[in-house]
Amino acid sequence: MRQKINLIGILLGITVFSACNSEKKKDIAETEKIKTETVIEEKVESKKMVWIDADLAVGKKNINRPGYSDVDDGYAVLQLLNAENVEIKGMSTVYGNNSIENAFAIGNYINKEFIDHKISVFKGSGEPIDINNVKTNDAVEALASALKKEPMTILAIGPATNIGILILKYPELKSQIKEVVLVAGRRTPNDIFNIGTKGVKAKDLNFDLDNAAFQVLLDYEVPLVLCPFEVSSKVWIEQQDLDTLKAFNIPMNWLATASQPWLEQWQTQGATGFNPFDALASHYIISPEDIISEPLLARLELHPDDTIKENEKQVFKQYLLCDDTKGTPVKYCFDVAPDYHQKLIDSYKNK
């Protein structure tokens, strides 16, 4: 009888131990599940929601003048598409380096050929803001709808026309804009945008094409990041870089091949390569630690046009000037990390 009781006790002990062990394993499994879900949630939340507004012109010849249009907008778009910490919420196009029709066509081509999870591409403005008759467009309305759903960063690498119209039409959406990253600005009117060594002076094109749009952004104190010629002039894409990029993947082969005539165009001006202007702005969004910036104040000022030879103060234009004296607060990018060039090239490799 005693042996039977002892046996029952042992069996009860084993049952209790097994139940406790099972509960412990269940608790551990639940804890691990929560940890996994938290990590996945944090990973999703760490992605930056970005809208691209671009004057795409890759591979297109200039309109009404010889030569090819800029290719740097293509470098910005493909870099963001390749970034693991960025989610593209939409893309709009704008006139600038070329026509709005060409920009829209290239945007759709990139979307069709190179993006696995398709995004929507919208046609924006084909001309500067008319302050006396502000008209919206498909791009502005699409961006407004997207901002109503969630806050976003906007990469605006053409004239700021679409963004200016957005702010005028929907000023309440300013709070949904984390930053607008633009390619424009300089410290003084004497900071010349030299292209090569043969005396060619470039315009601050995005700004020059629509001064009013930039004035709107400053007046409404939209959070702005400026990636001007000062920072992009310190970075060069040369022939060996194009050869390297062509071997990375199909999108980069397309872009690097289309960049060949653009590179040769710069070489005729005495340069060894070209500055990938817009890629500095997209890189800021992906890895802001690689782009050195400082807080400054921005404003518009009228001065003689520095791109006209022997001007003698006959032709004037507006300048977007940034210093510490007066104006609207902006973040001004002016230099890159010491190992930036390699980081830029590596950003186009398949992840």
Rank of each mutant, 00 (worst) to 15 (best):
F316V: 07
N111F: 01
C322P: 04
V330Y: 05
F214V: 08
L155C: 08
K309L: 14
A156N: 15
L245Q: 08
K135C: 05
E310A: 15
A281D: 00
P223Y: 11
Y340D: 00
S347M: 13
N211T: 10
K118Q: 13
A337W: 00
E45Y: 09
K60S: 00
V216F: 03
V183P: 04
K178E: 13
K35S: 06
F17Q: 13
N253W: 09
Y95A: 05
A298C: 15
N206I: 02
E101C: 04
E113I: 10
K135F: 04
L80T: 05
S92C: 02
P66Q: 08
F316W: 13
K24I: 14
S287I: 04
Q215K: 12
K48R: 02
N102H: 08
M1H: 11
P189E: 10
D72C: 04
Q269Y: 14
V140Q: 03
R299N: 14
I345K: 00
I285H: 07
D27L: 15
D335W: 06
A184D: 11
N82Y: 10
G107H: 03
D138F: 00
I100Y: 03
I292E: 07
I129A: 04
Y68R: 02
K135G: 03
L296I: 10
S125K: 07
I14N: 09
K149Y: 07
L166F: 03
R299V: 11
K148N: 08
K61W: 05
S293V: 13
F248W: 10
N85P: 13
E221M: 00
P159E: 05
I131D: 12
I34L: 09
D346H: 10
E150H: 14
N21S: 15
E101L: 06
Q267K: 15
I8V: 14
V94G: 03
N190R: 10
L173Q: 01
G13M: 14
T31D: 08
A279W: 03
E45F: 00
I167V: 10
A146W: 05
Y109Q: 11
P329C: 01
L226A: 12
K148Q: 12
L182I: 12
E84L: 13
